[in-house]
Design a protein around this nucleic acid. Structure first.
Length: 620
DNA sequence: TACTGCGGGTTTG
DNA sequence: CAAACCCGCAGTA
């Protein structure tokens, strides 16, 4: 057996400057493509390891160092339960899905419920049927099982060798990420579900700095019981956020939404229509890769020495650099009026900690926009993202509620840097009509302090490739990120966005396998387009999904508006668009509208659901 | 009380 | 036969 661990190391500056994008593994992590299988009789010895991926998703193979605590614990953000595969050498786990509200309630803030199922069967049974944490909802908790692997739960395999810990995942989670394990544990330590209910509402309404307090206990315990564990966690903090989710199908070549396997429920209306899409897209959303300042390779002697001040800053930025922060940005704004005093922190726990996902998740990726750090000259720009510096410029609640009502008045094509304006329509297919085009303004790398945001954003907003056999990640040195700052002059408050774009620096769609060509159309992620309302709400729009869009910086593109109301109320709306025309993605879509639908659907996955990474980041 | 790993056993395709 | 699944047990926190 020829074993080649394809390394995709970048030199540090390169990784800082160019490397982050959706669909690619962390630049400092080795490729998720490996010429080994967990079931191989002989597993190669390796010395280069992947960074820890808490939310590993899709078909992937990862190698962790033998001293990786998370790997040793076979940890995962997903709720994975042990499954007996009658192989003492390989530990197999299957996903339990996520606990959802039976009514799929959406809080005024836009939050939804996504609790972590208990691993223990008995405890899990007790969870089900309990009242929804949303006090104003009369629904009950129910399990949405994972069917991400051809109709069966996603499975994780762990295999230990003397020199490494091998991890292999099969399937693509078709549901929301559950709350982070640390959050679940913390909540449990808090007490009964009744408390949860109350907490949930409090937190959802208020602050995002929640779990910092919520997990104090946990942290204490960890620190006490684990010696230098704490320090390790600070390292982990970065690494966990580096989680990169994209799918590299080595076994099943089905598309995540239109699995061509026999059992895929996604090809037909499933029992959980209201959430299937939301969940899938959420699940497919990569954990955030942020903050290269803390990036490090996993070597045999992994260590961390972040200063407290660094950590503070790190956490501070991280809250905004992660999609979770984005999800809650409006909540943060509310919090702005109050200094984050300890009491406030105690009272205000983020919805994330209690299993809420803020906002219509499909569109939550849109929230990344306010996070874009502008050049320092724009006081009128990016007020939202500067909550740490000043009071918010907009009312979050307004933005959230308005989100459901209107389509964007301003749309930024993240791929081309073109800004489109419209009077605002509420249609899901009004793409392009009436939009004005603004030429992108190229601002090269802004202040270094924003680097992590840049990367974060890039990863968030570039769709990842998924479910394609053999995904190649190619870097083209010497090219730079392009930052596009848009200042809307006519409607100053309507939109100010800057978005880091990888212009021609990444070949997202290089296919290593000829077999992937048939699914190119479905796999390609086009330009991410974000619409921002005057009130701060935003819609999410996908590009046309063609490769040309990736590098084309100023072309007019096709796009469609993903109407959150459709996403929430009609699970099949975009699904139909996605699957209906392409035979489950198994055939190439040549029709432009199909491209649009496919791309839009894929882009739909771009949500700011990485609440857990964010939570943990805050914690640690 | 819950998590985790283990392993016997059953069901299903 | 492989894979998924159920169940109980033991150790641990």
């Amino acid at each position: 057996m020829v074993v080649v661990f394809k390394q995709e190391y970048e030199n540090q500056s390169m990784s800082n400057e160019y490397s982050y994008s959706r669909g690619r593994p962390p630049a400092e992590s080795i490729s998720r493509i490996a010429d080994w299988d967990i079931n191989d009789s002989i597993i190669p010895r390796v010395s280069n390891f992947n960074l820890w991926e808490e939310w590993a998703d899709g078909h992937c193979r990862l190698v962790y160092p033998p001293n990786c605590e998370e790997a040793k614990r076979h940890a995962s953000g997903w709720a994975m339960r042990n499954t007996n595969n009658h192989n003492v050498h390989i530990l197999k786990k299957s996903c339990l899905g996520v606990l959802l509200c039976s009514r799929r309630c959406v809080l005024p803030s836009g939050d939804t419920v996504h609790l972590r199922p208990a691993i223990c069967d008995k405890a899990r049974k007790k969870q089900q049927g309990k009242p929804c944490p949303n006090r104003q909802c009369h629904g009950h908790l129910e399990i949405m099982p994972c069917r991400g692997h051809c109709g069966y739960p996603v499975t994780h395999f762990w295999r230990h060798t003397e020199y490494a810990i091998f991890f292999q995942a099969k399937g693509v989670h078709d549901h929301l990420r559950p709350e982070a394990k640390s959050t679940s544990e913390a909540r449990r330590s808090f007490g009964t579900s009744r408390k949860i209910r109350n907490f949930g509402m409090i937190l959802t309404r208020d602050v995002p700095f929640n779990n910092k307090v919520l997990n104090l206990k946990n942290q204490k315990q960890k620190a006490i019981s684990n010696g230098n564990r704490k320090q390790y966690l600070s390292t982990q903090l970065t690494q966990e956020l580096i989680t990169e989710n994209r799918n590299i199908n080595s076994g099943c070549s089905c598309l995540p939404y239109c699995c061509v396997c026999n059992n895929s429920r996604l090809t037909a209306p499933g029992p959980e229509p209201a959430t299937a899409m939301l969940q899938h897209q959420q699940a497919s959303y990569p954990a955030q890769h942020h903050h290269h300042h803390h990036h490090r390779h996993y070597q045999h002697n992994t260590s961390s020495s972040s200063s407290s001040s660094e950590d503070d800053q790190h956490q501070h930025h991280q809250a905004w650099a992660t999609s979770a922060g984005l999800q809650n940005y409006h909540v943060l704004q509310q919090l702005q009026s109050e200094p984050p005093s300890s009491s406030a922190i105690v009272q205000n726990m983020p919805s994330a900690d209690f299993g809420f996902v803020t906002g219509p998740q499909p569109a939550s990726a849109v929230y990344c926009q306010p996070m874009q750090q502008p050049t320092t000259d724009g006081d009128d720009v990016f007020q939202l993202q500067r909550i740490d510096l000043r009071p918010p410029g907009q009312d979050a609640a307004t933005a959230s509620s308005a989100y459901h009502k209107c389509s964007p008045t301003t749309v930024l094509d993240l791929g081309s840097g073109t800004i489109h304006k419209s009077p605002g329509q509420c249609s899901g297919d009004n793409g392009g009509v009436g939009w004005q085009h603004y030429q992108p303004v190229d601002y090269h790398h802004p202040a270094a302090v924003h680097h992590h945001h840049d990367h974060q954003q890039q990863q968030q907003c570039f769709q990842t490739q998924q479910s394609c056999d053999g995904v190649g990640y190619h870097h083209h040195p010497g090219q730079q990120l392009q930052y596009t700052t848009i200042k809307t002059e006519e409607v100053p408050e309507s939109l100010d966005l800057m978005y880091p774009m990888a212009v021609q620096d990444v070949d997202y769609y290089a296919q290593l396998s000829s077999s992937s060509s048939s699914v190119d159309a479905a796999c390609h992620k086009g330009n991410a387009v974000v619409g921002v309302h005057n009130d701060g709400s935003m819609d999410f729009i996908g590009g046309d999904g063609t490769m040309a869009d990736i590098s084309a910086s100023q072309q007019v593109i096709d796009y469609m508006v993903l109407d959150p109301t459709k996403l929430l109320s009609n699970n099949n709306f975009y699904m139909d668009a996605y699957c209906g025309s392409g035979s489950g993605g198994a055939e190439t879509n040549n029709n432009d509208s199909d491209h649009t639908a496919v791309a839009a659907f894929n882009e739909f996955q771009l949500n700011a659901a990485d609440i857990h990474s964010w939570s943990q980041a805050i914690n640690q």
